[in-house]
Write a protein that binds this DNA or RNA. Structure first.
Lengths: 192, 192
DNA sequence: ACAGTTTCTGACCGATCGGTCAGTTAACAG
DNA sequence: CTGTTAACTGACCGATCGGTCAGAAACTGT
């Protein structure tokens, strides 16, 4: 329970909640019960706090990417990826939320560039394994939507139960949405 | 082509690209070729620029909500909502992107509260028309994912075509994902 | 040309930002 | 107790923030 780890967790939480630019070192110091100078004693800069906050999540996601990029997208690899991805989203909700909300405004920050590269790798993998443009769009909505919903659970409203068994539900939904042959009744084609 | 409308458009673009807090009045003034004082002559404050920027999108979404909240979710209303929603996303990409990326860090801004209320109304409508928790999760992923993907098209990578016929593709995917009886093979149930 | 109104600007304000630095306090080994 | 090191702090810095204000500049109708 070092001050170093505390500050990392506090900064991550504040960055995800209020945004990187809107979170001051003074605010982080107050939550930690320290002075701003002490925060800068443990971390060289505000950017160093950001990097320390989300790097573990990037490490994990890069391991997942390494495990799928060598193999084609079949039933087995799809199943493994989905469980890995869902567990990743559940384990790193704050980090995912921070990335989704701040990626555009922090494009010149090295650690955000690294995160953006991960998204590109993920998109490239599915792009090279899925032929239909519509399916690629559906896959993008599935992965992006899962990340977005997981990272902003308050969008479901406070009156709804927090979907306690969200892990199997997420696996179910993603398995449907990433199905190799999407179910698309002929009736739908006539609608558009 | 008044300076007023120009400033509204420039501010919206900058807010969406770099974030509200990270966009200074000085930056907006430079892009518009004016001084910071002139920007504040046309708009009383930075917050007024934000409100002017996204209010039209909220107006449109509230009309859509008014049109669905009185009727149950059947084939006809679902089809009408999907086309309305897709056209909304395509017409207000910047506004949606701005809201998605800044909603959390601007919770005390009235116009953002208004936008959040819209999301709550949307979630409540589907919540009251969909029984299965898994289906509600799938609907949330579909709507949130469509908004997220549309608002951040760069996630598809620069090497991919911008999905020129994205409107029919989006309608196809959302029609699948918002199907009243989701197709969920028994094989999926055994996986989880 | 003139007066009136709209548009625009530079100078300035207090506040806050991220970051530096000299020096104090606390912890601990001998 | 003493010396050393790690942890911490207040004072301060230049820069930038959103916003105010008096007045210049530009456009208007007469």
């Amino acid at each position: 329970m070092s001050s170093h780890d505390d500050l990392r967790a506090i900064a991550l939480s504040e960055f995800a909640r209020a945004g990187y630019g809107a979170t001051s070192l003074q605010r982080i110091a107050e939550v930690a019960g320290l002075s701003k100078s002490s925060v800068l004693y443990h971390f060289a800069s505000k950017e160093a706090l950001l990097e320390a906050g989300i790097s573990p999540a990037l490490d994990r996601m890069e391991v997942i990417l390494d495990s799928i990029e060598g193999a084609p997208l079949n039933d087995q690899t799809r199943r493994a990826f989905i469980t890995d991805f869902v567990d990743f989203l559940l384990a790193y909700r704050l980090e995912v939320h921070l990335f989704i909300n701040q990626a555009r405004s922090l494009e010149d920050v090295p650690v955000i560039d690294r995160a953006n590269l991960i998204v590109v790798r993920l998109a490239s993998y599915f792009h090279s394994n899925v032929d239909s443009p519509v399916d690629r769009l559906r896959f993008g909505i599935a992965l992006g939507g899962a990340a977005y919903v997981l990272a902003t659970e308050e969008n479901f409203g406070p009156e709804t139960e927090p979907l306690a068994d969200i892990r199997p539900a997420l696996i179910t939904v993603l398995t449907e949405l990433l199905a190799p042959v999407p179910v698309r009744p002929a009736a739908i084609q006539e609608l558009i």
